[in-house]
Write a protein that binds this DNA or RNA. Structure first.
Length: 426
RNA sequence: GUGGCUGUAGCUCAGUUGGCAGAGCACCUGUCUGUGGAUCAGGAUGUCGCGGGUUCGAGCCCCGUCAGCCACCCCA
């Protein structure tokens, strides 16, 4: 262990090139999935007032998990714990100028002051994507289809990952039928949320201790185990029909146990999970928020969206052996330096190759040629060029294909073409 | 915020009732003074997370602390 290194902040991650490559890979896949459905990229401030989240994000998130401090002017500010409220405000400010439906996506850092553990850090990156305007099951289906397009693009099959869908209005209507009073709905949601984490009898006992009658409990259990309930709800029938038409139905299941903690969801809610079960956390989650714009001072406007953090999906990809191969060097070509005498010649050669559109590394100083090849190998490079006395004398360059091990001498003028040819063949 | 497990070489880890600090991989050198991945030979490597305590003596026992992990809580 190296000594005297000041530790990084708890719950933060350091992105060495290998981790950065994964982050960029995820960014690329999110971007492609979003843009294939016509979503525009945008971003909001990373620093917001605490006030923005006060009423709508949920007590826990605001009181316990916001990274909050007072700025020099005395304002309570917070590193953003989520994006939806910033979205609502930015939409509200230009509400009459935007072209609807608004389709926006974003990828950036967020902070939550939580206890770090597997799948959870205090600083994380999150993909957010939202559609504002249309309030329809077909719009909801589109967002789910975007999520699945992403999942497919990183190699997750329906056997490996699934999206579970529910509807809060349906659940409210069912709670009405059971005669569960409105004021205890929040507790019921919490109860439903923890059902999957507890044993059946322990959960039942817990429910009864928390004020639920035996009659309500029996009704609730029957409700939560009714996987065909969606067929009785018009919006869900339309949602599944749309998912079918979009070709993603095999990835989606109805599940009345999905409720989600955030207060602003009003209709469709959904979460994606890894079925292999290495991580018990949702890969992504979202839903319809019908009143949010009005809540931040805009005109009524409905929206649907979801968020996906980079941490859980990273673990899921690793556990399913789906991480992309990492190539250390972005330059596939090494120009070696045979001897001090030929150093300028090597520099000139590398400059020519860059002019020809190649990414090229110069070995920075004369060294044993074996050491230079070792470097090329460790950096995952594809081609090494040697310019020694023999080559300079005959106006040639030795070009070695590091994958096949073959080496040929070619005339200096033909080197760019030869290198391109080797790279193209792989 | 609550409870538990862990922390030893660059990495993964072993370390006996408390008695000289270890292995594999990686690294460096050589085999190979114009060629990487393979083989073989040799070599270097430690604030045992940090701070205190007990003891003749602590990697090991005790207290504290920091970090990671696990279960809660919550959620991306």
């Amino acid at each position: 262990m190296a000594k005297n290194i000041i530790p990084s902040v708890k719950g933060t991650r350091e992105f060495y090139p290998e981790e950065m490559a994964l982050r960029n890979f995820l960014y690329k896949k999110m971007c492609e999935a979003s843009e294939s459905f016509g979503y525009q990229e945008w971003d909001a401030p990373y620093l917001e007032t605490l006030e923005l989240y006060a009423a709508k994000s949920g007590e826990e998130l605001v009181q316990e998990q916001a990274f909050t401090f007072e700025d020099r002017g005395g304002t309570r500010v917070t590193l953003r714990p989520e994006l939806t409220l910033s979205l609502a405000r930015m939409i509200a400010k230009k509400q009459r100028q935007l072209t609807y439906p608004v389709r926006w996506w974003s990828f950036g850092p967020f902070w939550r002051y939580e206890r770090p553990q597997k799948g959870r850090s205090r600083e994380f990156f999150q993909w957010n994507i939202d559609m504002l305007g249309p309030d329809s099951p077909e719009a909801d289906a589109e967002l789910i289809a975007v999520a699945i397009k992403f999942m497919k693009s990183v190699g997750l099959e329906p056997e490996q990952a699934r999206v579970y869908v529910n509807n809060r209005q349906l659940m409210d209507s069912e709670f009405d039928k059971l005669g569960i009073p409105t004021e205890s709905r929040l507790n019921i949601s919490n109860l439903v949320d923890r059902r999957s984490k507890m044993k059946a009898d322990a959960w039942a006992k817990y429910a009864l201790e928390n004020g639920l009658s035996q009659e309500h409990l029996d009704g609730l259990i029957a409700l939560l185990e009714n996987k065909d309930l969606w067929k009785e709800w018009e919006d869900l029938r339309r949602l599944f029909a749309a998912l079918d038409a979009l070709g993603v139905r095999e990835y989606v299941e109805f599940d009345p146990n999905i409720v989600r903690g955030l207060l602003y969801y009003t209709g469709t809610v959904f979460e994606a999970f890894d079925l292999s079960g290495g991580v018990r956390r949702a890969i992504l989650g979202g839903g319809r928020y019908g009143n949010l714009l009005a809540d931040v001072g805009g005109d009524p406007l409905s929206g649907i969206g979801f968020a996906m953090g980079d941490v859980v999906i990273g673990i899921v990809l690793a556990e399913n052996d789906l991480l992309p191969a990492f190539t250390p060097s972005p330059a596939p070509v090494l120009v070696t330096i045979f001897d001090k005498e030929f150093q300028q010649a090597s520099l000139a050669l590398s400059a020519e190759l860059r002019e020809a559109g190649l990414n090229v590394i110069n070995y920075p100083e004369p060294a044993k040629i074996g050491k230079q090849f070792k470097f090329a190998n460790a950096m995952g490079m594809k081609v090494a060029l040697v310019l020694g006395a023999d080559e300079v004398e005959s106006g040639q360059v030795a070009v070695k294909d590091l994958i096949s091990g073959e080496q040929v001498k070619v005339a200096r003028a033909d080197v760019p073409e030869k290198v391109h040819q080797i790279l193209a063949s792989e």
